[in-house]
Design a protein around this nucleic acid. Structure first.
Lengths: 197, 197
DNA sequence: GTCTATATGGCGATAGAC
DNA sequence: GTCTATCGCCATATAGAC
Protein backbone atom coordinates (compact mmCIF):
# COMPACT_ATOMS: atom_id res chain seq x y z
CA UNK A 1 0.00 0.00 0.00
CA UNK A 2 2.73 2.43 0.95
CA UNK A 3 4.76 1.29 -2.06
CA UNK A 4 1.78 1.92 -4.28
CA UNK A 5 1.42 5.39 -2.80
CA UNK A 6 5.01 6.25 -3.62
CA UNK A 7 5.06 4.60 -7.01
CA UNK A 8 1.80 5.67 -8.56
CA UNK A 9 1.31 8.96 -6.73
CA UNK A 10 -1.97 7.86 -5.24
CA UNK A 11 -2.80 9.73 -2.10
CA UNK A 12 -3.26 13.30 -0.98
CA UNK A 13 -2.54 15.69 -3.83
CA UNK A 14 -2.54 13.02 -6.50
CA UNK A 15 -6.00 14.03 -7.69
CA UNK A 16 -4.89 17.60 -8.13
CA UNK A 17 -1.87 16.52 -10.11
CA UNK A 18 -3.91 14.35 -12.41
CA UNK A 19 -6.37 17.21 -12.81
CA UNK A 20 -3.59 19.60 -13.84
CA UNK A 21 -2.22 17.08 -16.33
CA UNK A 22 -5.66 16.50 -17.83
CA UNK A 23 -6.37 20.23 -18.00
CA UNK A 24 -3.02 20.88 -19.66
CA UNK A 25 -3.82 18.31 -22.34
CA UNK A 26 -7.13 19.96 -23.14
CA UNK A 27 -5.89 23.54 -22.80
CA UNK A 28 -3.06 23.03 -25.26
CA UNK A 29 -5.22 21.11 -27.68
CA UNK A 30 -8.31 23.32 -27.77
CA UNK A 31 -7.29 26.52 -25.99
CA UNK A 32 -8.27 27.62 -22.48
CA UNK A 33 -11.50 29.35 -23.41
CA UNK A 34 -12.80 26.47 -25.51
CA UNK A 35 -12.17 23.97 -22.70
CA UNK A 36 -15.02 23.57 -20.23
CA UNK A 37 -14.80 22.09 -16.76
CA UNK A 38 -17.21 19.43 -18.00
CA UNK A 39 -14.63 18.31 -20.57
CA UNK A 40 -11.96 18.11 -17.90
CA UNK A 41 -14.28 16.14 -15.65
CA UNK A 42 -15.25 13.77 -18.45
CA UNK A 43 -11.60 13.18 -19.39
CA UNK A 44 -10.90 12.29 -15.75
CA UNK A 45 -13.98 10.12 -15.46
CA UNK A 46 -15.53 12.19 -12.64
CA UNK A 47 -18.15 14.92 -12.36
CA UNK A 48 -17.75 18.69 -12.44
CA UNK A 49 -18.34 18.90 -8.71
CA UNK A 50 -15.33 16.67 -8.13
CA UNK A 51 -13.23 19.10 -10.15
CA UNK A 52 -14.49 22.01 -8.07
CA UNK A 53 -13.41 20.16 -4.96
CA UNK A 54 -9.76 20.68 -5.99
CA UNK A 55 -9.87 24.22 -7.35
CA UNK A 56 -12.58 26.72 -6.68
CA UNK A 57 -12.68 28.33 -10.14
CA UNK A 58 -11.53 27.79 -13.69
CA UNK A 59 -9.07 30.66 -13.34
CA UNK A 60 -7.38 28.86 -10.47
CA UNK A 61 -6.99 25.73 -12.56
CA UNK A 62 -5.34 27.75 -15.32
CA UNK A 63 -3.04 29.40 -12.80
CA UNK A 64 -2.13 26.07 -11.22
CA UNK A 65 -1.35 24.56 -14.62
CA UNK A 66 0.78 27.47 -15.71
CA UNK A 67 2.52 28.41 -12.48
CA UNK A 68 5.50 26.01 -12.53
CA UNK A 69 6.64 27.10 -15.98
CA UNK A 70 5.96 30.71 -15.13
CA UNK A 71 8.15 30.54 -12.07
CA UNK A 72 10.89 28.81 -14.04
CA UNK A 73 10.67 31.65 -16.55
CA UNK A 74 10.88 34.29 -13.81
CA UNK A 75 13.91 32.56 -12.37
CA UNK A 76 15.56 32.60 -15.77
CA UNK A 77 14.87 36.31 -16.21
CA UNK A 78 16.40 37.09 -12.83
CA UNK A 79 19.44 34.94 -13.61
CA UNK A 80 19.96 36.60 -16.99
CA UNK A 81 19.55 40.06 -15.49
CA UNK A 82 22.35 39.24 -13.05
CA UNK A 83 24.83 38.67 -15.89
CA UNK A 84 27.11 41.63 -16.43
CA UNK A 85 27.87 41.48 -20.16
CA UNK A 86 25.25 41.71 -22.87
CA UNK A 87 26.61 38.63 -24.61
CA UNK A 88 26.26 36.61 -21.40
CA UNK A 89 22.71 37.88 -20.90
CA UNK A 90 21.68 36.77 -24.37
CA UNK A 91 23.42 33.41 -24.02
CA UNK A 92 21.81 32.78 -20.65
CA UNK A 93 18.40 33.57 -22.11
CA UNK A 94 18.90 31.34 -25.13
CA UNK A 95 19.96 28.24 -23.26
CA UNK A 96 17.47 28.94 -20.47
CA UNK A 97 14.60 29.28 -22.91
CA UNK A 98 15.65 26.08 -24.64
CA UNK A 99 15.70 24.28 -21.28
CA UNK A 100 12.31 25.70 -20.40
CA UNK A 101 10.69 24.62 -23.63
CA UNK A 102 12.18 21.16 -23.27
CA UNK A 103 10.84 20.82 -19.74
CA UNK A 104 7.43 22.18 -20.77
CA UNK A 105 7.13 21.56 -24.49
CA UNK A 106 3.37 21.99 -24.63
CA UNK A 107 2.87 24.49 -21.83
CA UNK A 108 4.91 27.22 -23.50
CA UNK A 109 2.24 27.65 -26.18
CA UNK A 110 -0.25 28.50 -23.47
CA UNK A 111 1.94 31.18 -21.93
CA UNK A 112 2.99 32.65 -25.24
CA UNK A 113 -0.12 32.29 -27.31
CA UNK A 114 -3.40 31.78 -25.47
CA UNK A 115 -5.17 35.13 -25.01
CA UNK A 116 -7.44 33.80 -22.26
CA UNK A 117 -4.43 32.53 -20.35
CA UNK A 118 -2.68 35.88 -20.74
CA UNK A 119 -5.79 37.74 -19.61
CA UNK A 120 -6.03 35.61 -16.47
CA UNK A 121 -2.36 36.22 -15.67
CA UNK A 122 -2.95 39.95 -15.93
CA UNK A 123 -5.97 39.70 -13.63
CA UNK A 124 -3.91 37.92 -10.99
CA UNK A 125 -0.80 40.06 -11.28
CA UNK A 126 1.58 38.02 -9.17
CA UNK A 127 3.73 37.92 -12.28
CA UNK A 128 4.32 41.46 -13.49
CA UNK A 129 5.52 42.80 -16.85
CA UNK A 130 7.42 39.71 -17.89
CA UNK A 131 7.20 40.09 -21.65
CA UNK A 132 9.03 43.40 -21.67
CA UNK A 133 11.87 42.04 -19.58
CA UNK A 134 12.22 39.08 -21.92
CA UNK A 135 12.54 41.33 -24.96
CA UNK A 136 14.89 43.68 -23.10
CA UNK A 137 17.22 40.83 -22.17
CA UNK A 138 17.32 39.49 -25.72
CA UNK A 139 17.45 42.77 -27.62
CA UNK A 140 19.31 44.89 -25.09
CA UNK A 141 18.57 48.31 -23.63
CA UNK A 142 17.38 50.92 -26.15
CA UNK A 143 17.54 48.34 -28.95
CA UNK A 144 17.40 48.93 -32.67
CA UNK A 145 14.13 47.78 -34.27
CA UNK A 146 15.81 44.86 -36.01
CA UNK A 147 16.81 43.37 -32.67
CA UNK A 148 13.29 43.82 -31.33
CA UNK A 149 11.90 42.00 -34.36
CA UNK A 150 14.39 39.17 -33.86
CA UNK A 151 13.57 38.89 -30.16
CA UNK A 152 9.85 38.81 -30.86
CA UNK A 153 10.34 36.15 -33.49
CA UNK A 154 12.42 34.05 -31.13
CA UNK A 155 9.94 34.22 -28.25
CA UNK A 156 6.99 33.45 -30.48
CA UNK A 157 8.91 30.96 -32.59
CA UNK A 158 9.85 28.69 -29.69
CA UNK A 159 6.19 27.79 -29.68
CA UNK A 160 6.49 26.17 -33.07
CA UNK A 161 9.93 24.64 -32.64
CA UNK A 162 8.75 21.26 -31.38
CA UNK A 163 5.34 20.90 -32.95
CA UNK A 164 6.30 18.76 -35.94
CA UNK A 165 6.13 14.97 -35.53
CA UNK A 166 9.64 14.64 -36.98
CA UNK A 167 10.85 16.84 -34.12
CA UNK A 168 8.73 15.41 -31.32
CA UNK A 169 10.53 12.11 -31.80
CA UNK A 170 13.95 13.62 -31.02
CA UNK A 171 15.55 13.19 -27.63
CA UNK A 172 16.00 16.27 -25.46
CA UNK A 173 19.72 16.68 -26.14
CA UNK A 174 19.35 16.79 -29.90
CA UNK A 175 16.25 18.96 -29.85
CA UNK A 176 18.02 21.38 -27.56
CA UNK A 177 20.99 21.71 -29.93
CA UNK A 178 18.70 22.59 -32.83
CA UNK A 179 16.75 25.14 -30.83
CA UNK A 180 19.89 26.78 -29.49
CA UNK A 181 21.35 26.83 -32.99
CA UNK A 182 18.27 28.55 -34.38
CA UNK A 183 18.26 31.08 -31.58
CA UNK A 184 21.95 31.88 -32.12
CA UNK A 185 21.46 32.47 -35.82
CA UNK A 186 18.38 34.58 -35.18
CA UNK A 187 19.97 36.76 -32.50
CA UNK A 188 23.36 37.05 -34.20
CA UNK A 189 24.38 40.73 -34.31
CA UNK A 190 24.17 42.44 -37.68
CA UNK A 191 25.67 45.64 -38.95
CA UNK A 192 23.07 48.37 -38.27
CA UNK A 193 22.70 49.86 -41.78
CA UNK A 194 25.10 48.92 -44.54
CA UNK A 195 24.74 47.39 -47.98
CA UNK A 196 24.57 43.64 -47.69
CA UNK A 197 22.45 42.77 -50.73
CA UNK B 1 -25.19 60.78 -51.41
CA UNK B 2 -23.53 58.84 -54.20
CA UNK B 3 -20.19 60.41 -53.28
CA UNK B 4 -20.70 59.33 -49.70
CA UNK B 5 -21.43 55.82 -50.87
CA UNK B 6 -18.18 55.62 -52.77
CA UNK B 7 -16.10 57.39 -50.19
CA UNK B 8 -17.21 55.79 -46.97
CA UNK B 9 -18.28 52.41 -48.30
CA UNK B 10 -21.84 52.83 -47.13
CA UNK B 11 -24.22 50.69 -49.09
CA UNK B 12 -24.66 47.04 -49.93
CA UNK B 13 -21.86 44.98 -48.44
CA UNK B 14 -20.58 47.74 -46.21
CA UNK B 15 -22.21 46.21 -43.16
CA UNK B 16 -20.51 42.90 -43.79
CA UNK B 17 -17.16 44.57 -44.16
CA UNK B 18 -17.55 46.49 -40.93
CA UNK B 19 -18.64 43.28 -39.25
CA UNK B 20 -15.51 41.45 -40.42
CA UNK B 21 -13.30 44.31 -39.23
CA UNK B 22 -14.99 44.37 -35.83
CA UNK B 23 -14.80 40.60 -35.51
CA UNK B 24 -11.12 40.62 -36.45
CA UNK B 25 -10.40 43.15 -33.71
CA UNK B 26 -12.08 41.01 -31.08
CA UNK B 27 -10.78 37.68 -32.38
CA UNK B 28 -7.17 38.81 -32.32
CA UNK B 29 -7.53 40.48 -28.93
CA UNK B 30 -9.42 37.78 -27.03
CA UNK B 31 -9.29 34.70 -29.26
CA UNK B 32 -12.11 33.26 -31.35
CA UNK B 33 -13.63 31.05 -28.67
CA UNK B 34 -13.70 33.80 -26.05
CA UNK B 35 -15.45 36.20 -28.42
CA UNK B 36 -19.25 35.95 -28.43
CA UNK B 37 -21.58 37.23 -31.12
CA UNK B 38 -23.02 39.51 -28.46
CA UNK B 39 -19.62 41.19 -28.08
CA UNK B 40 -19.37 41.71 -31.82
CA UNK B 41 -22.89 43.12 -31.91
CA UNK B 42 -22.20 45.45 -28.97
CA UNK B 43 -18.98 46.71 -30.57
CA UNK B 44 -20.94 47.49 -33.74
CA UNK B 45 -23.79 49.08 -31.82
CA UNK B 46 -26.40 46.61 -33.09
CA UNK B 47 -28.07 43.44 -31.80
CA UNK B 48 -27.13 39.83 -32.27
CA UNK B 49 -29.95 39.33 -34.75
CA UNK B 50 -28.47 42.01 -36.99
CA UNK B 51 -25.19 40.10 -36.97
CA UNK B 52 -26.99 36.92 -37.98
CA UNK B 53 -28.49 38.73 -40.93
CA UNK B 54 -25.02 38.93 -42.49
CA UNK B 55 -23.66 35.47 -41.63
CA UNK B 56 -25.69 32.52 -40.58
CA UNK B 57 -23.28 31.12 -38.00
CA UNK B 58 -20.22 32.03 -35.99
CA UNK B 59 -18.12 29.62 -38.01
CA UNK B 60 -19.00 31.50 -41.18
CA UNK B 61 -17.89 34.76 -39.62
CA UNK B 62 -14.54 33.24 -38.70
CA UNK B 63 -14.19 31.84 -42.19
CA UNK B 64 -15.07 35.17 -43.80
CA UNK B 65 -12.54 36.99 -41.59
CA UNK B 66 -9.76 34.54 -42.34
CA UNK B 67 -10.42 33.71 -45.97
CA UNK B 68 -8.54 36.57 -47.72
CA UNK B 69 -5.29 35.87 -45.89
CA UNK B 70 -5.77 32.15 -46.34
CA UNK B 71 -6.15 32.51 -50.07
CA UNK B 72 -3.12 34.75 -50.23
CA UNK B 73 -1.20 32.05 -48.37
CA UNK B 74 -2.42 29.33 -50.74
CA UNK B 75 -1.37 31.44 -53.69
CA UNK B 76 2.06 31.85 -52.18
CA UNK B 77 2.43 28.12 -51.63
CA UNK B 78 1.50 27.39 -55.24
CA UNK B 79 3.92 30.03 -56.48
CA UNK B 80 6.76 28.67 -54.37
CA UNK B 81 6.03 25.11 -55.44
CA UNK B 82 6.39 26.21 -59.06
CA UNK B 83 9.99 27.33 -58.48
CA UNK B 84 12.51 24.82 -59.73
CA UNK B 85 15.47 25.29 -57.38
CA UNK B 86 15.30 24.79 -53.64
CA UNK B 87 16.95 28.16 -53.03
CA UNK B 88 14.31 29.90 -55.11
CA UNK B 89 11.54 28.07 -53.26
CA UNK B 90 12.86 29.18 -49.89
CA UNK B 91 13.42 32.74 -51.08
CA UNK B 92 9.91 32.94 -52.56
CA UNK B 93 8.45 31.69 -49.29
CA UNK B 94 10.45 34.15 -47.18
CA UNK B 95 9.52 37.27 -49.10
CA UNK B 96 5.97 36.03 -49.64
CA UNK B 97 5.46 35.38 -45.95
CA UNK B 98 6.87 38.80 -45.14
CA UNK B 99 4.43 40.38 -47.60
CA UNK B 100 1.57 38.38 -46.14
CA UNK B 101 2.30 39.37 -42.58
CA UNK B 102 2.62 43.01 -43.61
CA UNK B 103 -0.74 42.93 -45.39
CA UNK B 104 -2.38 41.10 -42.48
CA UNK B 105 -0.30 41.88 -39.42
CA UNK B 106 -2.94 40.83 -36.90
CA UNK B 107 -4.73 38.15 -38.87
CA UNK B 108 -1.69 35.89 -39.10
CA UNK B 109 -1.85 35.19 -35.36
CA UNK B 110 -5.34 33.79 -35.84
CA UNK B 111 -4.27 31.44 -38.60
CA UNK B 112 -1.11 30.33 -36.86
CA UNK B 113 -2.14 30.29 -33.23
CA UNK B 114 -5.86 30.15 -32.50
CA UNK B 115 -6.93 26.52 -31.92
CA UNK B 116 -10.62 27.28 -32.46
CA UNK B 117 -9.83 28.94 -35.77
CA UNK B 118 -7.73 25.95 -36.82
CA UNK B 119 -10.48 23.55 -35.80
CA UNK B 120 -13.03 25.44 -37.90
CA UNK B 121 -10.72 25.39 -40.91
CA UNK B 122 -10.39 21.64 -40.56
CA UNK B 123 -14.16 21.26 -40.35
CA UNK B 124 -14.65 23.21 -43.58
CA UNK B 125 -11.80 21.60 -45.48
CA UNK B 126 -11.74 23.88 -48.49
CA UNK B 127 -8.15 24.50 -47.49
CA UNK B 128 -6.35 21.20 -47.15
CA UNK B 129 -3.09 20.28 -45.46
CA UNK B 130 -1.47 23.67 -45.72
CA UNK B 131 0.85 23.48 -42.75
CA UNK B 132 2.75 20.51 -44.11
CA UNK B 133 3.29 22.17 -47.46
CA UNK B 134 4.61 25.28 -45.74
CA UNK B 135 7.17 23.29 -43.78
CA UNK B 136 8.07 21.22 -46.84
CA UNK B 137 8.76 24.34 -48.90
CA UNK B 138 10.91 25.88 -46.19
CA UNK B 139 12.78 22.78 -45.04
CA UNK B 140 12.85 20.84 -48.29
CA UNK B 141 11.88 17.26 -49.10
CA UNK B 142 13.03 14.66 -46.58
CA UNK B 143 14.59 17.39 -44.41
CA UNK B 144 16.99 17.00 -41.52
CA UNK B 145 15.40 17.70 -38.12
CA UNK B 146 17.33 20.96 -37.74
CA UNK B 147 15.65 22.38 -40.82
CA UNK B 148 12.24 21.32 -39.57
CA UNK B 149 12.90 23.07 -36.26
CA UNK B 150 13.98 26.21 -38.10
CA UNK B 151 10.92 26.15 -40.36
CA UNK B 152 8.61 25.69 -37.40
CA UNK B 153 10.26 28.55 -35.56
CA UNK B 154 9.94 30.81 -38.58
CA UNK B 155 6.26 30.07 -39.17
CA UNK B 156 5.38 30.50 -35.51
CA UNK B 157 7.80 33.38 -35.00
CA UNK B 158 6.26 35.60 -37.68
CA UNK B 159 3.37 35.90 -35.28
CA UNK B 160 5.54 37.76 -32.79
CA UNK B 161 7.57 39.78 -35.25
CA UNK B 162 5.36 42.85 -35.27
CA UNK B 163 3.80 42.75 -31.82
CA UNK B 164 6.13 45.19 -30.06
CA UNK B 165 5.12 48.88 -30.04
CA UNK B 166 8.62 49.84 -31.21
CA UNK B 167 8.01 47.69 -34.29
CA UNK B 168 4.39 48.61 -34.95
CA UNK B 169 5.52 52.16 -35.56
CA UNK B 170 7.80 51.16 -38.45
CA UNK B 171 6.71 51.66 -42.05
CA UNK B 172 6.11 48.56 -44.15
CA UNK B 173 9.40 48.77 -46.09
CA UNK B 174 11.58 48.83 -43.01
CA UNK B 175 9.58 46.20 -41.16
CA UNK B 176 9.80 43.97 -44.20
CA UNK B 177 13.59 44.24 -44.35
CA UNK B 178 13.92 43.19 -40.72
CA UNK B 179 11.56 40.24 -41.11
CA UNK B 180 13.28 39.04 -44.27
CA UNK B 181 16.64 39.43 -42.56
CA UNK B 182 15.53 37.34 -39.60
CA UNK B 183 14.10 34.67 -41.87
CA UNK B 184 17.32 34.49 -43.89
CA UNK B 185 19.46 34.04 -40.81
CA UNK B 186 17.09 31.44 -39.42
CA UNK B 187 16.87 29.39 -42.62
CA UNK B 188 20.52 29.73 -43.58
CA UNK B 189 21.91 26.28 -44.38
CA UNK B 190 24.23 24.75 -41.83
CA UNK B 191 26.65 21.90 -42.11
CA UNK B 192 24.76 18.76 -40.98
CA UNK B 193 27.11 17.54 -38.25
CA UNK B 194 30.54 19.10 -37.83
CA UNK B 195 32.30 20.99 -35.07
CA UNK B 196 31.35 24.66 -35.19
CA UNK B 197 31.74 25.63 -31.50
C1' DG C 1 -13.09 12.77 -2.57
C1' DT C 2 -17.03 11.99 -5.11
C1' DC C 3 -21.78 12.27 -5.91
C1' DT C 4 -26.85 14.35 -7.20
C1' DA C 5 -29.24 18.33 -7.73
C1' DT C 6 -29.77 22.97 -8.63
C1' DA C 7 -29.16 28.13 -9.31
C1' DT C 8 -28.14 31.62 -12.59
C1' DG C 9 -26.62 33.38 -16.59
C1' DG C 10 -24.74 33.61 -21.33
C1' DC C 11 -24.27 31.06 -25.46
C1' DG C 12 -25.50 30.20 -30.56
C1' DA C 13 -29.37 30.35 -33.25
C1' DT C 14 -34.36 31.27 -35.03
C1' DA C 15 -39.05 33.58 -35.86
C1' DG C 16 -41.41 37.25 -37.27
C1' DA C 17 -42.61 42.41 -37.02
C1' DC C 18 -41.15 46.89 -38.93
C1' DG D 1 -31.10 45.88 -42.30
C1' DT D 2 -32.48 46.14 -37.79
C1' DC D 3 -35.42 45.14 -34.08
C1' DT D 4 -37.91 42.31 -29.92
C1' DA D 5 -38.66 38.00 -28.16
C1' DT D 6 -37.65 33.49 -27.46
C1' DC D 7 -35.82 28.63 -27.84
C1' DG D 8 -32.80 25.00 -26.03
C1' DC D 9 -28.47 24.22 -24.37
C1' DC D 10 -24.33 24.44 -21.79
C1' DA D 11 -21.40 27.39 -19.06
C1' DT D 12 -19.51 28.40 -14.21
C1' DA D 13 -20.45 27.76 -9.73
C1' DT D 14 -22.77 26.17 -5.16
C1' DA D 15 -25.25 23.15 -1.54
C1' DG D 16 -25.42 19.27 0.85
C1' DA D 17 -25.63 13.97 1.13
C1' DC D 18 -22.57 9.84 1.28
Amino acid sequence: MTAELAERQIGPGAGRERLRATALDLFTERGVSATSLQMIADAMGVTKAAVYHHYKSKDEIVLAVVRPALEQLMGLVRLAESRRSRAAQVETMIVGLADLIIANRRLYALLQGDPTCTAILQRYPEFPTLGERLVALLAGPDPDPGSVVAAGMLLAGLRGAGSDPRVMVLDDEEFRRYVVGCAHRLMRPRRPASATG
